[in-house]
Write a protein that binds this DNA or RNA. Structure first.
Lengths: 157, 157
DNA sequence: GGGTCTATATATAACGT
DNA sequence: TACGTTATATATAGACC
C-alpha cells in the first residue's frame, strides 16, 4: 500500500509475508475496534496464521464465542442469502474499479492534449514562439479545416 | 479519518452512523480479503448491525462456519465448499487483468492520436491518410478539445 | 527478527447532487 | 436516501537499524 502498490497475490517470501501479516493484522484489529465503537455494533474477527500457535481474536475469545454462537444459530437459508450478498459486493467493487479506470483514461487524455497544445503553441520544432493572437488564430483555422474534413468524411460514410 | 479526525465514540446521529457503518464495513471487508490473500491465512469477520437483518460475514457462510469449527476444536474439513470463494476470487483477478489490458490499449491509442495530431498541425500529413489509423470520431473529439483550448487561450489574451 | 522512519497508497468525513 | 467527489487522515511497503 505504500512506496509501491502491492500485487494482491500470495506473498511467497516468508519473511515479507510474516511482516505484512503482523502489520496488517494490527491495522485490521484497529479497524474493527473503531467500527464497533463508532457504530455500537457487535463484531468479531478471527485470524489463523501459521506464524502463531494461537489465533488472533477480537474483541476477546469470549466475545468471539458469543458472536460465533449467534451466527451458528442462523438457518442455512439465511447463511445462503448472505453468500449472495458477498458476491454482489464483489461485483460492486469490480464495477467501481472500471469506473475509476474510465475516469483515469479521460484524465490522461486531457493531459495529453494539454501537452500537445503546449508543444505546438511553444513551437517545439521549427516554428517560433506562437503565443500571440495572430498565430493562435492561424492554428485555430487549421484545426477548423481539419474538423470540416473530418465531418464530411463522416457524412460520406 | 478524513476532512476531520474523528472522535472515537459512539455516533449518536443515526443517519451519520449508518453511513459510517456502510463505508467502514466495506473497507474492513476489503482489508480482511487482502490479508487473507496476501498471507494465505484463514480468517473470518462477522458484523452485526441494527441496520441489517442479516449480519455481514466474510468470507462466506461456509468460510465462517469452517473457522467456527476450528475455533471450537472440531476440525472436520470439507474442501469442496471452498470452491465457491475461490471462483469469486478468480473472477476478480481475471477482471483485474482485463482492466489492465484495456488500460494499455487506450494508452496506446492515445499515443497514436497524439502523434497524428502533431503531424497534422505540422502539415506533414493529411486527414485522408488517417482513415486507416484511427476512428475519425476520436480524432474529431481530440480536435474539438484542442479548439476549446485555443478559444480559451484567445479569450485570455 | 522486530521496531522505527518516510514516501505512497488507501480509507473515509464532509459535502455536493 | 443513497451515491459520487474531494480534502485529509491513516495504513503500510520498503529501507534502515
Amino acid at each position: 500500500m505504500a512506496r509501491k502498490k502491492v500485487n494482491l497475490i500470495y506473498i511467497t517470501d516468508e519473511s515479507t509475508r510474516k511482516t505484512t501479516f503482523r502489520k496488517r493484522r494490527n491495522g485490521l484489529i484497529k479497524k474493527v475496534d473503531e467500527l464497533s465503537t463508532l457504530c455500537g455494533i457487535q463484531a468479531c474477527v478471527i485470524l489463523y496464521s501459521c506464524f502463531d500457535s494461537q489465533p488472533s481474536v477480537w474483541p476477546s475469545a469470549d466475545g468471539a464465542n458469543r458472536v460465533l454462537r449467534k451466527f451458528k444459530n442462523m438457518s442455512e437459508l439465511d447463511q445462503g442469502k448472505r453468500r449472495m450478498d458477498q458476491e454482489s459486493f464483489l461485483r460492486q467493487r469490480i464495477e467501481k474499479a472500471n469506473q475509476q479506470l474510465k475516469k483515469q483514461c479521460l484524465a490522461n487524455r486531457e493531459l495529453e492534449m494539454t501537452k500537445v497544445m503546449l508543444e505546438n503553441l511553444r513551437g517545439e520544432s521549427s516554428v517560433e514562439n506562437l503565443m500571440n493572437v495572430m498565430d493562435l488564430n492561424d492554428l485555430k483555422w487549421v484545426i477548423q479545416e481539419n474538423l470540416k474534413e473530418i465531418n464530411s468524411s463522416l457524412a460520406a460514410l
